[in-house]
Amino acid sequence: MMGMYGFPVIGGGWLYGVPAAVVVVLAAVLLMRLLSRRPHSGHHPAVDRNAGSSTAIQILEERYARGEIRAEEYQERLKTLGSP
Rank of each mutant, 00 (worst) to 15 (best):
E76P: 01
S54W: 13
M1V: 03
P45Q: 03
R70D: 15
V22F: 02
L78E: 06
A46F: 07
L60C: 01
P39T: 07
A21V: 01
G12R: 11
R37A: 13
A56P: 01
V47I: 14
I69N: 11
P8I: 14
P45K: 06
V18W: 06
L78I: 09
L26I: 08
E76A: 05
R77F: 03
P8A: 14
M1L: 11
H40A: 12
P45V: 04
R33Q: 07
G67R: 10
A46C: 02
S41Q: 13
A51C: 03
Y16C: 10
I59M: 12
N50M: 08
L26A: 06
M32Y: 15
Q75F: 12
E76G: 02
A56G: 00
I10H: 09
F7H: 14
G12M: 15
A27L: 07
I69F: 11
P45A: 08
E76W: 06
G3C: 07
S41Y: 15
G17Q: 04
E76F: 06
A65G: 10
R70W: 05
E76V: 00
M1G: 14
V29H: 02
A27F: 10
I69E: 06
Y64N: 08
M2A: 08
V29I: 11
D48Q: 06
A46Q: 03
R63Y: 07
W14S: 15
R63K: 12
P39Q: 11
L15G: 06
A46H: 05
L26P: 02
S41W: 12
Y64V: 03
V9P: 04
M1C: 05
H44V: 09
V23D: 10
G17H: 13
L35M: 14
P45E: 10
K79E: 14
F7M: 15
E73H: 08
E73G: 05
Q58A: 13
H44E: 09
